[in-house]
C-alpha cells in the first residue's frame, strides 16, 4: 500500500495466498521428517527429539476407515492407532468450521500435486486443468464417493487396512520401504503424471478422505461468498479455482469439491475488495 494524493493505493496485490504455501510445505516437511525418522528408528538409529510415529498413526483417514469396526466391536483395525481417531475428530471439527481446509492447507499429497501442477501451468498455460470434457468431469467428480464406500466396506469386512495397498499418500512417504505395495506406488506415479495436466487429480476423482470432508461443505460455518452488488463478473475467481468451481455464478459456494484454498477471494485473484470473501455471515 502507498499513500498517493491522500488515498490508500495498493500497488502490489498478491495473485495467490502465499501463506497457504508456507503452511502446506511446513506440514509436508513435518510429515516427511517423522516418516523418515520412523524408518531410522526401526533400523536402530533415529533423529533425537523428533517423533517417529508410523504414517498410519498420522492419518486422519485411518480413523474413518476403522470407524465401523470401532463402533461395532470397540477395536481398531490393525495398524490404526488411537491418534488416528483423534485426528479424525480434529478433522471433522475443522471441516464443520471451514470445510475441507485440511485438503487445501495441510494434506501433503495435495501439496505435491500442486507442485507438479506448477509445471503444467507454466507449459500448458490455458489448456492446463481443462483436459477432461465437462460432462465426463461432472460424473467423475462423484467417483471418490464410490471409493469411500468401497474402502469402508472392505475395511469393515476384512478388519485389515486394505486401502494401504492403493494409498498414494502412504506410498509418498514410504516409497523407500518394503512396506509399500507396487499398486500404491503406481497410483502415486499416475497421480503425479496427471497433475501435470489437471489440478489435484487424486483429490478431484479418487480421494476417499476428500469425499468424506467434502460432505461438510453442505453445511460448514465459514464459506466462500460472493457479493453480487460489487462483483464485476470478470470470471477471474472461476478461472483461478483449482477445483474448477464456477464461483462467479454463485453467491455461496456449497460445492462438495471446494477445498477452502481462498485463491478465488478478494485477498488473491478477485480484483474488487470485499467481493469474494470467506465468512460466516451473509453478503449482498
Amino acid at each position: 500500500m502507498i499513500k498517493l494524493f491522500g488515498k490508500q493505493i495498493r500497488i502490489f496485490r498478491p495473485r495467490s495466498i502465499w501463506i497457504r504455501k508456507v503452511v502446506q510445505w511446513f506440514f509436508f516437511a513435518f510429515i516427511a521428517l517423522i516418516s523418515i525418522n520412523h524408518t531410522l528408528v526401526e533400523s536402530g538409529s533415529g533423529i533425537p527429539f523428533l517423533a517417529s510415529a508410523s504414517l498410519h498413526a498420522l492419518c486422519p483417514f485411518g480413523g474413518v476407515e476403522t470407524l465401523y469396526t470401532f463402533l461395532a466391536s470397540g477395536v481398531l483395525v490393525k495398524k490404526v492407532h488411537d491418534a488416528s481417531l483423534v485426528l479424525m475428530g480434529i478433522g471433522i471439527f475443522l471441516a464443520v468450521l471451514f470445510g475441507p481446509a485440511f485438503c487445501g492447507w495441510i494434506c501433503p499429497l495435495g501439496t505435491i500435486q500442486e507442485f507438479v501442477s506448477g509445471f503444467g501451468k507454466k507449459y500448458l498455460r490455458r489448456r492446463f486443468n481443462h483436459f477432461v470434457p465437462f460432462k465426463l468431469d461432472q460424473v467423475l467428480r462423484y467417483a471418490r464417493y464410490a471409493v469411500l464406500v468401497w474402502v469402508i466396506y472392505v475395511t469393515a469386512t476384512s478388519s485389515t487396512l486394505i486401502f494401504e495397498a492403493y494409498d498414494p499418500y502412504f506410498a509418498l512417504f514410504n516409497f523407500w520401504s518394503a512396506e509399500v505395495a507396487p499398486t500404491a506406488l503406481a497410483i502415486l506415479g499416475i497421480t503425479l503424471v496427471l497433475s501435470f495436466f489437471v489440478e489435484r487429480p487424486w483429490c478431484k476423482y479418487a480421494c476417499p478422505y476428500g469425499a468424506f470432508l467434502g460432505v461438510f461443505n453442505l453445511f460448514r460455518i465459514f464459506s466462500i461468498k460472493r457479493a453480487e452488488s460489487t462483483c464485476k463478473a470478470d470470471g477471474a475467481c472461476s478461472i483461478m479455482c483449482p477445483m474448477n468451481i464456477q464461483v462467479d455464478t454463485k453467491t455461496v459456494i456449497r460445492d462438495h469439491q471446494c477445498i477452502s484454498c481462498l485463491e478465488c477471494t478478494s485477498e488473491a485473484i478477485c480484483p474488487v475488495a470485499k467481493t469474494v470473501i470467506f465468512t460466516s455471515g451473509s453478503v449482498k
Binding site: 471451514f98 481446509a101 492447507w105 477452502s260 485477498e267 488473491a268 470473501i277 470467506f278
Partner: peptide, 11 residues
Amino acid sequence: TINSKTLAALL
C-alpha cells in the same frame, strides 16, 4: 469474515 493469515493460524 476471516482472511488467509487468520485461517492459517486457526488451522
